[in-house]
Design a protein around this nucleic acid. Structure first.
Ligand SMILES: NC(=O)c1ccc[n+]([C@@H]2O[C@H](COP(=O)([O-])OP(=O)(O)OC[C@H]3O[C@@H](n4cnc5c(N)ncnc54)[C@H](O)[C@@H]3O)[C@@H](O)[C@H]2O)c1
Ligand SMILES: NC(=O)c1ccc[n+]([C@@H]2O[C@H](COP(=O)([O-])OP(=O)(O)OC[C@H]3O[C@@H](n4cnc5c(N)ncnc54)[C@H](O)[C@@H]3O)[C@@H](O)[C@H]2O)c1
Lengths: 227, 227
DNA sequence: GAAATGATGTGAAACAATTCACAAAATACA
DNA sequence: TGTATTTTGTGAATTGTTTCACATCATTTC
């Protein structure tokens, strides 16, 4: 039986990020028209792949005319809901948390860290433009700013307990920097960013003496390689 | 014709990281014997997948007896060359660079940041245990410590030029935090870590109202999901 | 305005990854 | 000792993804 659900594939979504990065650059350079093979060359995928990905997201181009850079970028912004403002909170204002709170790109991309939280009263003194609160104010802020996504930069040991509280208060997505596999209900999305693992991946591939077959971006090397 | 090359698949490598995280925890809890379905439950994959992944990396268990936690962990450490010391350098001691340089887990995992570099003489004053050098000393340090892997935390605008220099001096793998697609020779591995993208992925999936089908870890949601 | 060209878009084919199904082996237990 | 049970390990089947091949159409050229 034919299903009525449609599937969006993670890999294609990942590639959309690549295309967008490439398009942003081309736009800055004043390029108005872009072809599938341009994006393909720049990102290390094939041009068929680019077009298949586009078709997956319903993106149409002009026969012989390629794609309009601005339109394409706009479609991609919409895919990632960048037309809307997103209120984010950040838990844990330690080394990493402070760096993240100062990262200007989040704001440029409509992702506003509306507040940060730390258990340590000392850290709660303002150390950046963004206020640092005690965890007791979590509910208030989440409700007020309708926050759905949180960044978690607390020590491994506290990560699960903080997560439980966030989920209880209605958070639906977490970018987690602590090296633990968090347990959450089915409807909550966890994106683990483990910087040690990222480094170890590179070490792994460097050791395997990868002669990458076309692309050199690790995120695209999912197909496998000789060793 | 049968090929003599063997392929290691990126997805399975990614899952090995998950299994390892899980095993570390089980080890701390004093668990000596682990079954494929234990790891499967904990990580959200199927037990067949666990065994297939293991067979890919040549890991053998005991029929009915499962796997020995310690042995399994050891094999995984070897996969990631954690028995060897790895000398790493870090370029760009701004907000992110400082946070990374203070991250203790790198050392715990045999990845030593032997030196950091910054173009700004002010930043070159010691701000952590690790020395901060001018870029003029790159060659000396890379040669002395036989550095093959670098962490790049410089602004977008300088990322490519610094990369060119690193590659020229023999660096073979880069973890890149700048939101640009770096151009490097075929034999150099780039692992782009784009924290904005990681956040946007979460926003994307939260918006799609994902009811994740088994696993809630974004890195495993490559298979696709209903919306 | 007809022919050549150059790009998209997409079924079909090829390839890759996962799941299924079950044999084989180790252990437990009667 | 033999039978039941449990878990691994892996071919086969299925499912998913990428590449191929080419029809199609817009544009340029003659
Ligand atoms: N520093 C890095 O570059 C880096 C890199 C990769 C991963 N990480 C991970 O990110 C996390 C944070 O790292 P860090 O270096 O910033 O550590 P850190 O110790 O400097 O900061 C942790 C902060 O969390 C706060 N905190 C502790 N328990 C809390 C709780 N229950 N609720 C709210 N806040 C709490 C602490 O007061 C502290 O300010 C860790 O899990 C670490 O493993 C850090
Ligand atoms: N801060 C974050 O949390 C964060 C998050 C995601 C991505 N990033 C990315 O990481 C990079 C660094 O971010 P940041 O916030 O630390 O920026 P930053 O401006 O605080 O730090 C950049 C550092 O690089 C140094 N630098 C500049 N040009 C250099 C060169 N040619 N050689 C060596 N050093 C040079 C500067 O002196 C500065 O110390 C940026 O590309 C940023 O987009 C940062």
């Amino acid at each position: 039986m034919k299903q009525f659900t449609k599937y969006i594939i993670k890999n294609s979504l990942k590639r959309i990020f690549l295309y967008r990065a490439c398009l942003s650059r081309l736009k800055l350079m004043g390029v108005e028209k872009v072809f599938s093979y341009t994006l393909a060359n720049e990102t290390g995928v094939t041009s068929e792949q680019v077009r298949k990905d586009f078709s997956e997201f319903g993106i149409k181009g002009n026969k012989k005319g390629g794609y309009n850079t601005n339109e394409l970028l706009e479609v991609m912004e919409n895919i990632f809901h960048r037309n809307k403002e997103h209120n984010i909170i950040l838990i844990g204002m330690g080394n990493l948390g402070i760096a993240l709170s100062k990262h200007s790109q989040f704001i440029q991309r409509n992702m506003n860290i509306v507040a940060t939280f730390d258990i340590d009263p000392f850290k709660q003194k303002v150390r950046s433009d963004i206020p640092v609160y005690s965890l007791s104010r979590l509910k208030e802020i989440i409700d007020r700013f309708k926050v759905k996504v949180a960044i978690l930069a607390v020590p491994e040991i506290s990560a699960q307990e903080v997560t439980d509280e966030l989920v209880r208060l209605g958070i639906k997505g977490i970018v987690n920097f602590a090296p633990v596999l968090l347990k959450v209900p089915q409807d909550v999305i966890i994106n683990n960013v483990n910087l040690c693992n990222e480094l170890e991946s590179v070490i792994y591939y460097v050791h395997q003496q990868i002669k990458a077959d076309g692309s050199k971006n690790l995120e695209l090397l999912y197909k496998g390689m000789k060793y």
